[in-house]
Simulated assay, not measured.
Amino acid sequence: MKPLLFKIAKSEEQSVKVLEEDYPYFYDSLHYHIETQIMVILEGRGTYFIGDAIGNFTAGDIFLIGSNLPHFFRSDPSYYAADSCLRAKNISILFALENLGEAFLNLPEVYPIKSLLQASKRGLQVHGSSRERLFRAAQKASQKKGLRRILHLLKQLNHLVMSEEITTLSHIVFEPMSSPGDTKKVNSVVHFIMLNFNKDISLADAADVANLSTNSFCRFFKKHTRKTFSQFLNEIRIGHACKQLIEEAYSVKEVAFDSGYYNISYFNRQFKLITSYTPSEYLKAHKNTRNLAN
């Protein structure tokens, strides 16, 4: 994947930068940065792309995005409507502990944090009580100044080191690359898919967006996303279907059609392949999880 290198502006007085962002929708172009990022979703929902992982996010979710890991968060379609009053709010904590020196990171007491940061290069999602703790800590981070902010961050990272409530997202570690032309093509194709996934779109349609032949596009897309066009499209469609099942209480047939599937048997096969559940099993598992949480 060859995303846009995103340079984080920060003053000489800040080695840990805290951004409190409030926009109509989340920044939705593929990018990466050398800083590690703690992404806390305060308000909004949509689809995340982190490395080769695709999934849904909502308010309260927290992600640890490692150095040079390609990612973006795309808000649901309703956020892009001209008359939308919805907001996308988040706290981002950006830092590069490598600036403290290799000797510091190799201290026995600090080395576990170094290992956590290495793991974050595949993207991590924080759950349960660890998420609740980090959520509260992130809200206090902007109030900390100077050394207190660094110590506050190290304290939270140390808690994450000991947590068993963390999920690894991407299957592979991505190497940093930069090619504006390729980045533009990848983003154009992804945006096209996100706008049209519930329609009957084809490989040729996506190839036209990238201005490539179908054969060239297949190689290009697999190289930059680690997925075939069909895999990528199905993951977007099934992710949408999961949200529809949970939030809208539609029937399986309605969800299938709304997600771009006109063959129920094929929809059921893809749903089981991607989620490891049938639609009815998925809905039952979600209800059980929600009841336990309550």
Rank of each mutant, 00 (worst) to 15 (best):
L169D: 04
R131F: 01
L124E: 05
D52V: 09
T289K: 09
L116H: 07
I246N: 04
E132G: 02
A103R: 13
S259W: 04
I8P: 14
R219D: 14
P24A: 03
S170W: 07
N56S: 13
E109C: 07
D200N: 13
K2P: 10
D200Y: 10
V110L: 04
L105D: 02
T289N: 04
L19F: 15
I54T: 06
Y80G: 07
Q231S: 13
Y25S: 05
A256L: 04
D52T: 08
N291H: 10
V161S: 01
Q244F: 09
R290G: 00
I150F: 01
L233N: 05
I166E: 05
K243I: 10
C242R: 11
L19T: 12
S163D: 03
D258G: 07
F197G: 02
K223N: 11
F221M: 02
Y27P: 06
D52S: 05
H159D: 12
Q14G: 04
H159C: 12
A137T: 09
L116E: 03
F49R: 08
K2T: 13
L107Y: 09
G123E: 08
Q244H: 06
N268L: 04
N268Y: 07
F72W: 11
F174P: 08
L5N: 13
S265D: 14
T275V: 08
I236Y: 02
C242V: 11
G181T: 11
I62G: 00
T167E: 14
R226L: 06
I193S: 01
L157W: 02
Q231R: 10
V190Y: 00
M162Q: 14
L19G: 08
N215I: 14
L69H: 03
K272E: 08
T36C: 03
Q118N: 13
L160V: 12
L169N: 04
V189P: 02
F63T: 10
H31G: 01
S78G: 07
V126D: 01
V252M: 06
P70M: 01
L116S: 01
V252W: 02
C218Y: 06
S11F: 08
V173N: 07
Q139W: 05
D83L: 01
H171R: 12
V189F: 00
P70G: 00
N99D: 14
V209G: 05
G260L: 06
L147I: 14
F192P: 12
F267I: 09
S213D: 13
Y261R: 03
S230H: 11
